[in-house]
Computed example of a mutant assay.
Amino acid sequence: MSDPHDGSYGEQTPDRAAGFRSVPSRRGRGGTRAIQKPGQAELPRPGYQRGGGPVMEDWKAGLWAELRAIEIATGDAAAAQLPALLRRLQRHQARLGGNPMLAPYRRWRIRRLTRAVADARWHAEQGRVARLGGLDPRR
């Protein structure tokens, strides 16, 4: 059974979880804020290790390494798709003068494939840049 004087009355809500007790807020508006019970170890602040040193630089380095790996993989995938996209684009461009009923579709398809080829070339270039150690910040 819970202590009737700790203010929790046995319920556990996200604001008042196990190991915390409620106290009146300093603003006097009737709300409560959660503080740790005496005797429980205080967890380190976010961004700091238990030893007290900042870990933000390590986190940023890991994030940049992961982004670089993603850029390289995306560039490799785009470079692999580029020959097939160019082949499909040339096929649609060659058939443009054919059936006039299909001309609007073919023009739309040519626009879409042209955009896809441009995107694939851009991603392939970004993969090459990332492989050499830099990322283009224009994204």
Rank of each mutant, 00 (worst) to 15 (best):
W64N: 06
W64Y: 13
A65P: 01
A65M: 03
E66C: 07
E66N: 08
I70Y: 05
E71F: 10
I72W: 10
A73K: 05
G75E: 11
G75I: 05
D76L: 09
D76Q: 10
A77E: 06
A78I: 04
A79C: 03
A79V: 01
A80S: 08
A80Q: 09
Q81L: 14
P83Y: 09
P83K: 03
P83M: 06
L85A: 07
R87S: 12
R88V: 00
L89V: 00
L89M: 09
Q90P: 01
H92V: 02
R95Q: 12
L96S: 02
G97L: 13
G97E: 14
G98H: 13
G98M: 13
N99Q: 03
N99Y: 02
P100F: 15
M101C: 02
A103M: 14
P104R: 07
Y105L: 11
R107E: 15
W108I: 00
W108S: 03
W108M: 05
R109D: 06
R109M: 09
I110K: 06
I110L: 15
I110V: 07
R111E: 08
L113H: 07
L113W: 14
L113A: 11
L113E: 12
T114K: 08
R115I: 04
R115H: 12
A116Y: 02
A116V: 01
V117R: 09
D119V: 05
A120Y: 13
R121I: 04
W122C: 06
H123K: 08
A124I: 02
